[in-house]
């Protein structure tokens, strides 16, 4: 795969504190790369540095082999940005806002009109073109914010937490839109602290903490890092202590906990753990109300690597 962005040894200090510390990573063409990390982990600083909005102390950032500077207008032409905070004019309508931000890249009126119409369709704002932002709901404003960032059809799109404070319906619309952008050929760098979103749309994930990369890879690769295969929860009434000890001795079992009539069994890697567990329950004639299996989440990965929750 073609490397479209290369970040090497990027370091940014605010006085003595390192906001980002020796970051090195690649972004491949037409992938969705997720930058995941808790608040203050350095996601936005990394993006600002990559957009040349922020000077940095060490390292370099190259787009297709060319280092970006504040005057690299040829590179900037290919970049679209959707910031975390909504950045639109209150005085302009939805259409006028998108037209203005698209106009910063595209001078030709006819092409711009088509691009603006396409962006409006993509974020499904057709009914609201003549509305002013104040008249829009939070979710619709977010969609407008996205349209303003991507209307000029950039090849590389930075999305900095675009779904913050958005209702589930709008969130799904936004995520669908992002998938469409990728289908149309865009490369996307997506930052968030919602791990479900990352799992849903990202091809590769970089997890940041305290300005450092703690791991990177596909979600499957990351989950392998934990050594956890799956977690099974069984709803059993009045389970005695002997049985709990017996569960602990089963093959591949890492941990067993019984709380509020829920038995949680964590398995390490191994085949058919869930089937073997059901066979065991039948054999021991242990009756249960509900049983379900969960695969490890990115939060489990983060917990395993840092000892703290991703949402902290």
């Amino acid at each position: 795969m073609k490397k479209i962005i290369e970040v090497k040894h990027l370091t940014k200090k605010y006085r003595k504190i390192k906001a980002i510390d020796n970051l090195s990573f690649y972004v491949f063409e037409n992938e969705i790369l997720g930058l995941l990390g808790p608040n203050g982990s350095g996601k936005t600083t990394t993006i600002n540095a990559m957009l040349s909005l922020l000077s940095y102390d060490k390292g370099n950032i190259c787009y297709l082999g060319k280092e970006i500077t504040p005057d690299s207008y040829d590179i900037k032409k290919e970049i679209g940005v959707v910031f975390q905070e909504i950045a639109v004019f209150d005085e302009l309508t939805v259409y006028e806002n998108i037209d203005y931000f698209c106009g910063l890249y595209i001078e030709d009126k006819k092409i711009r009109k088509k691009y603006v119409d396409d962006a409006i369709k993509l974020v499904k704002l057709e009914q609201f073109v003549n509305y002013k932002p104040k008249a829009l709901s939070g979710g619709l404003k977010r969609r407008l914010n996205i349209a303003c960032g991507i209307a000029h059809k950039p090849k590389i799109i930075f999305l900095d937490e675009p779904t913050v404070a958005v209702d589930p319906q709008s969130r799904n619309n936004i995520l669908e839109g992002i998938k469409k952008l990728r289908e149309n050929g865009a490369t996307i760098i997506y930052t968030t602290h919602y791990m479900e979103e990352v799992e849903k749309i990202c091809d590769r994930i970089i997890i940041l903490d305290k300005g450092k990369i703690i791991c990177q890879g596909t979600k499957e690769e990351l989950k392998q890092l934990t050594g956890i295969e799956e977690k099974v929860t069984i709803e059993i009434n009045n389970l005695d202590r002997n049985h709990i000890e017996k569960f602990k001795k089963l093959q591949n079992v890492k941990n067993v906990e019984y709380r509020f009539e829920n038995l949680e069994i964590t398995f390490i890697k191994g085949k058919n753990n869930f089937t073997k567990l059901i066979d065991y329950l039948k054999k021991e004639k242990i009756s249960y109300n509900k049983i379900y299996s969960e695969m490890p989440t990115l939060n489990d990965v983060f917990l395993e690597l840092t000892g703290k929750d991703l949402k902290d």
């Binding site: 957009l51 040349s52 909005l53 504040p70 207008y73 040829d74 900037k76 032409k77 970049i79 940005v81 910031f83 905070e85 909504i86 950045a87 639109v88 004019f89 931000f101 910063l104 890249y105 303003c148 960032g149």
Partner: peptide
């Protein structure tokens, strides 16, 4: 934020 959008665009600031 609007200013940031202008700065990151390909339009000469």
């Amino acid at each position: 934020m609007i200013n940031k959008r202008i700065i990151v665009s390909s339009c000469n600031y």
